[in-house]
Amino acid sequence: MAAGGDHGSPDSYRSPLASRYASPEMCFVFSDRYKFRTWRQLWLWLAEAEQTLGLPITDEQIQEMKSNLENIDFKMAAEEEKRLRHDVMAHVHTFGHCCPKAAGIIHLGATSCYVGDNTDLIILRNALDLLLPKLARVISRLADFAKERASLPTLGFTHFQPAQLTTVGKRCCLWIQDLCMDLQNLKRVRDDLRFRGVKGTTGTQASFLQLFEGDDHKVEQLDKMVTEKAGFKRAFIITGQTYTRKVDIEVLSVLASLGASVHKICTDIRLLANLKEMEEPFEKQQIGSSAMPYKRNPMRSERCCSLARHLMTLVMDPLQTASVQWFERTLDDSANRRICLAEAFLTADTILNTLQNISEGLVVYPKVIERRIRQELPFMATENIIMAMVKAGGSRQDCHEKIRVLSQQAASVVKQEGGDNDLIERIQVDAYFSPIHSQLDHLLDPSSFTGRASQQVQRFLEEEVYPLLKPYESVMKVKAELCL
């Protein structure tokens, strides 16, 4: 049975990233139509530049190519590739079939990587351009969430054990800070992308030097003109047959890092959902379990974690691919890159769409948070109580021993009897502590235990987050809708 299948058929496997999760716009960027249309555009740009620099290419040939950029006979191309065992030459023939007058000058002087690699770089750039505003929107939604809850005390956790208090907004800023680093890295790697350009079979530009009869300047002009037509500021000066596969490492490393950030955020949300302090959106008709109707599973956060793990592992592909590119190139890269580049971007696209949807509907339960604080705060307040007693004339050592005994009794009630923490009640009825009984409410005010959390939130948002989001103001209103 021949390899390949009808990918629109229910009898043929289709990647869930495309069929179930990723956005239509990201799927289109990695589609065959987008790819092969870009090949034709690159052939047109090459012909236009070659004509401008004096090669015998007519206006009629150029116009014929322009008129057929979208006229792609995919069936013919597939048949040609089956016959020739070469995808680029299959599309040269297919393009030439609908451009008979231009057929002889299509791909003039070029090698397969002229269309293959340059198209990949265009796709990487455009895919990054799709991700950047999506990530900015996630940051914006979380920034709104953090600002609104900047002063809401909550129990902090280290080692997932109760620690000092923080605020809900401050905790959210930990998430935002990681995503801001990801946004900066995505922008950097996007701006650092260079075009492969017009380089020939081993990167020496020998074929173009021959076409222009040894004119170095025209060869350099050709490279520059096509690079500018493709919208790049610069091209690699040095290439082998391909652009260095280190570029793929750079791009997928940034995406993998984004995956790590999203995994951490969504894990926190899942843990908070278990504590009943916070939940992701839950639709009115949504079913959490087929057997347990009360369940409210954090399905979206779980999906993000599941896909983020996949995204983090994909960076190993370009690392290994770059390491086995012998001399000017081997074909070890080809099949692998067809999979890992598309999957990385479709996965990143999915987790950003999902995280935006989550961040637009996060639900906080202040009463649950308050109750958990009441359970733990008495123990945390013991040092403040000791200091207040010393100020009232008591002995630190005597007070410490009193607190120690009462704390152990209260802990026994919590752990052995399943009761509430009654340390404060014990202190309130103990005559030894009568000098500070009137101060206990103040000493137990949760806001006095959150330090500068709310001020940190305000400063972080104003100095770091809002300036970073400013270039994306025009796209901030787009909502994230999930079908599944």
Rank of each mutant, 00 (worst) to 15 (best):
T201H: 00
H107C: 07
T242K: 03
R309L: 05
G104D: 09
I106F: 07
L346C: 09
G419V: 12
S257R: 05
A256D: 05
Q164R: 00
L55F: 02
F145Q: 07
R300H: 12
I62E: 04
R337T: 00
I72P: 07
T52I: 10
Y365T: 04
T94Y: 07
H86C: 03
W326I: 10
L44S: 08
M380Q: 08
H93G: 12
Q161D: 02
D129G: 11
Q409C: 08
K82E: 13
F157G: 01
P162N: 05
L183A: 09
G169L: 00
T347I: 10
M225P: 02
V457D: 02
N71R: 10
A411V: 08
A392D: 07
V115S: 06
Q325L: 13
K66A: 10
V219P: 02
T204E: 02
L319M: 07
F74C: 14
A143G: 13
P446E: 03
C266N: 06
R83S: 12
F449N: 04
K101L: 14
R188V: 02
L275C: 06
I176V: 11
E302M: 08
I385N: 03
L108P: 00
S9R: 12
P378R: 02
M380G: 03
D144I: 15
A344W: 04
G231M: 07
L84A: 09
C113T: 04
F30C: 08
Q416R: 09
K66I: 07
P10S: 14
R171N: 01
D6L: 11
M312P: 00
C305H: 05
Y472I: 13
D120P: 01
D32I: 11
G4Q: 15
D87H: 02
T167Y: 01
I403E: 05
T201W: 02
G259M: 04
E228V: 11
E417K: 10
V254R: 14
I265V: 10
L132P: 11
P467E: 10
L69K: 08
H7T: 14
T201I: 04
R337A: 04
L255E: 05
E48P: 04
P378V: 07
S261Y: 02
L311S: 05
G169K: 06
S301K: 05
C340I: 09
H107V: 00
G451R: 03
H7A: 10
G203N: 01
R459M: 12
F433N: 03
P298A: 13
F345K: 03
I386S: 03
F195M: 14
Q184L: 11
L440T: 02
I386E: 02
R171K: 05
Y21K: 02
L482K: 08
G240I: 06
K147C: 09
S323D: 08
G109Q: 00
T244F: 05
Y466G: 14
S412I: 15
A411M: 08
L131C: 11
V115Q: 03
K264W: 06
L69G: 06
Q164P: 02
S454W: 09
R37N: 13
L121R: 01
M65S: 00
